[in-house]
Design a protein around this nucleic acid. Structure first.
Lengths: 233, 233
DNA sequence: CTCGAACGTTGCGGTTGCGCAAACTCCGCC
DNA sequence: GGCGGAGTTTGCGCAACCGCAACGTTCGAG
């Protein structure tokens, strides 16, 4: 394996406060790995023996019901730590991590977690912030699922995708990794049929354009108003 | 205000590792406050200037939608820290805390949080564990809301209530604080009508007994099977 | 180029659970 | 002890959403 370059980490939240030498130490302890879309990085309820930093790509955090249905808890963009079970007092991963697109991640043995926290300033607050953000995001999802109709939930999910993982194009914002109707339904707790119907309707109205596995939002404002207001005819 | 006794804290998770003197220091910095059922301890999006420890009673963590509907995120039993925004990198409370029954809580200025974390061993891991547990609980709720029918969701919510906040009686387990149909509906994302219908049905089958604001589960096993299996006729 | 699998669309019928409304019960208070 | 309000029950009609099923489309492999 080639030696990793320090510049990979210097501007990421957990490492901004660190010196070049410290980052070198950290990198020398890291293992790098590439994942194809769909690969499992770690599985729900497996012993949490490593923690990860996503360098490139997107990770989908999923859980499975006893009946085998999947639910997507959240998405993780490049630059974030994940699988940090130690920071939550967990000994096993509470959910699975699956690559949503081709991805590259560094990882370290979990026993280094407390060492990193103790030794490197800025590491702990950054990880706390990540946890706080995810907690807030899950708050929002619960709120949504408890009170909102399917159309608003899907609109919200799509908006979250393009704000955090969107790529600007000439005619709108496109989700930066492959998303199927099934994926969207797993994020919103509905069926792929309903998602398909909604996307078709939105496409007829010119709000979105979609090809197989690709969704582009041409009129984000209209999606926002769908997400906020009660559905109108 | 009377001086608080050390024994209040000695067996609570964040303080077990501390000496009598350390606990004395901590207590001398604390403010104690009593809340009537329904009182707001702190409000959503207010600046997070204090953190709390619940000594007695129960706290309901609620959020409100733009339309004014309430959703209960989770319940906090006595002995737990709450309002610990600092530990999540938040500067404002992400939700409101409301006393579900008459409650007593200690509180400290938020600036002491980092000090406590630095000075007292065992404090940080204990708070991390609490956060981890809540994250897991919210995971479970999302999973439930995304995949399960209303009956199973309500059964699950009731089971959670009696396992964490139940009081044994001669003929079953009773929820240890007043719960209305409305409350249960806010926990499960449904309406009080539906909850009422379900409780009536369960009462006819002898699974629960309920009086105004009180719910007792006489046959928890049957509730478990409702919560786990697909509803049968 | 062809084939097959994965992905997406659409129609139709059926439940579920919500909304509304009305009535009832319990409890505390003046 | 009567009144009022909060909490609860229940019936009825209906919209939303799901499930099934069938068919269409796209893409990559060989």
């Amino acid at each position: 394996m080639r030696k990793l370059d320090e510049s990979l980490l210097t501007h990421l939240a957990p490492f901004v406060a660190l010196s070049r030498e410290e980052i070198r130490e950290i990198l020398d302890l890291a293992t790098s790995h590439r994942y194809d879309a769909g690969d499992t990085v770690f599985a729900e309820s497996a012993p949490a023996d490593r923690f990860f930093l996503l360098l490139d790509g997107y990770i989908r955090v999923v859980r499975m019901t006893a009946e085998g249905e999947q639910v997507t808890m959240l998405h993780i963009p490049a630059g974030q730590l994940f699988g940090i079970a130690d920071a939550l007092g967990h000994t096993h991963y509470p959910a699975s991590a699956v690559a949503a697109s081709e991805s590259i991640a560094l990882s370290w043995p979990m026993r280094l977690w407390s060492e990193f926290e103790a030794r490197y300033t800025g590491f702990t607050p950054a990880s706390q912030k990540v946890v706080g953000k995810r907690l807030k995001e899950m708050h929002d999802r619960i709120l949504e699922m408890a009170t909102q109709q399917v159309e608003r939930r899907v609109a919200n999910a799509l908006l979250r995708l393009i704000t955090h993982m969107g790529r600007k194009t000439d005619s709108g914002i496109e989700v930066d990794f492959p998303v199927t109707r099934q994926d969207l339904s797993e994020m919103t707790g509905t069926t792929l049929h309903t998602v398909s119907r909604l996307l078709s309707a939105w496409e007829r109205e010119g709000i979105v354009e979609s090809r197989r596995k690709h969704i582009m939002v041409s009129q984000p404002e209209r999606l926002v108003s769908l997400a906020e207001s009660v559905a109108q005819i």
